[in-house]
Amino acid sequence: MTLKRIYIVAGELSGDILGAGLMRELKARHPDVEFRGVGGPRMIELGMQSRFPLETLSVMGLVEVLKHLPELLRVRKMLKAEALAWQPDLMLGIDAPDFNLGLERTLHDAGIKTAHYVSPSVWAWRQGRVKKIARAVDGMLTLLPFEADFYREHRVPVAFVGHPLADELPLDTDRRAARETLGLATEGPLVALLPGSRANEIRFMGPTFLTAAARLCERFPALQFVIPAATPARHQELNALLTEYPELATRVTLLEGQAREAMVASDIVLLTSGTAALEAMLCHRPMLVAYKMAPATHWLAKRLVKARWISLPNLIAQETLVPELIQDAASAHEIAEQLARLLDHPVEREALEARFAAMHAALQRGASRRAAEAIEALAAGQPLVQGDS
């Protein structure tokens, strides 16, 4: 089947990256295919006719969503009308599930094939949403294997396509070269500290991470730290915070960005979960996850979240490879103890690096190519090919 028209709605910058990779693959297979919907600069450069700026859908938080709800509903109504008039071979929503699943359901009910790329965290909380997803899409495209397992259990057609970040990062890492690039000592133990990319994460975790670092310095005289600040604002906040820890003045290198290089350069990574944990795994570095949140948020999360782990390496492995210290357990003392254990056991660190390299290889599947194959199958009315997932 030759694809002629694909309607794509991406919800944020990460969706623009995924959408551009998929569009590139589809154009190579179907040179005359057209794309309409919502996309960012990468997708537009590849020929996407974007009806609204990407930022239109990039609304986070309950209050912000409520404030923009009339506009979001207006946009969805216009996209629905255009898609129905254009009659694409398939409509694909990339992430932004609160917006896209409603649009997908409407178009699906009207007879248009639909798919969703990037699973919401339905396996972790509000699992009842899987019924809504099953009614909205002909297929789900997941980045991670345990997500695909969840959909199979609930009889939703699914394809595990792999993670684009795994395709992007090399399977071979060079710790010494990374240290030279960052101007760090090539010998001696090094811990990368990633206290988060948001201001509230620095507020909750920054002092705890630095207090733990100061305690470790007492036990490991040659230990050094590197902190990649996610943004200029985070760099300023961390720089101010470091003035309260004069004992770390000669031990810490504060970077502007370069998180990936800092991870590769390190022996161990201390971080606050999220995508950073996946990236550390793909850099093949042992890590410790420590996270605190507002007490009310933690109380609610404990009652809503069903997942056994919060970090992606553990979820992918379906076993505890990475220690997780949450809320009261994430004390400076316990963090220092856990890091000291890892520093004292190089053989254990090497085993983890090898395990993470194997997991990286399993995720390195050519995600954009596999996503394109899934789109072709769905548009043709064929079942999704599960492959060796």
Rank of each mutant, 00 (worst) to 15 (best):
L73Q: 12
E334H: 12
Q258F: 04
G15H: 09
A240F: 03
L26Y: 15
A96C: 07
L72F: 09
L223I: 05
A249M: 11
A361F: 02
P207R: 02
W86S: 02
V156I: 14
E218K: 13
A380L: 07
L57R: 14
M359E: 08
D32Q: 15
K4C: 11
A340F: 04
G37Q: 04
L238S: 14
L254V: 04
I8Y: 05
A96Y: 12
A110Q: 09
I44H: 02
T297R: 05
V305F: 01
A290M: 15
R370Y: 09
P70R: 00
R179G: 06
N100G: 09
A81P: 05
P346Q: 00
W86Q: 00
E12Q: 08
D95W: 03
H333G: 07
A10R: 11
F356N: 03
V226Y: 05
L141I: 13
D98T: 10
A233N: 04
L304C: 09
E187T: 13
L378D: 02
L352T: 05
M281R: 07
G381D: 04
A259D: 00
D167I: 12
A229Y: 01
A354Y: 01
P145T: 06
S331W: 10
F99T: 13
E373N: 10
F225R: 08
A110E: 06
K77H: 15
T2S: 08
A222P: 00
F99M: 09
R369K: 10
V118S: 06
V75I: 15
R51T: 01
G257F: 01
Q87H: 08
A354D: 14
L342T: 03
P207E: 05
L216T: 05
L270V: 06
R105H: 15
R24L: 01
K27D: 01
E261W: 04
Y7D: 02
L312E: 12
T253C: 10
A222V: 05
S389Q: 10
T253Q: 13
I17K: 03
L193F: 00
G381S: 06
L101M: 13
H68N: 13
S121I: 06
E350Q: 10
E376D: 10
K292N: 14
A361L: 11
A372T: 06
D89L: 00
P70W: 00
G61D: 04
A124E: 07
A110R: 10
V322R: 08
E45P: 02
P346E: 06
A332K: 05
K306Y: 00
V130S: 07
E104K: 10
A166L: 12
R219Q: 14
Q386L: 15
G102K: 08
A380P: 05
T56M: 04
R76W: 07
L3T: 15
L169Y: 10
V156H: 07
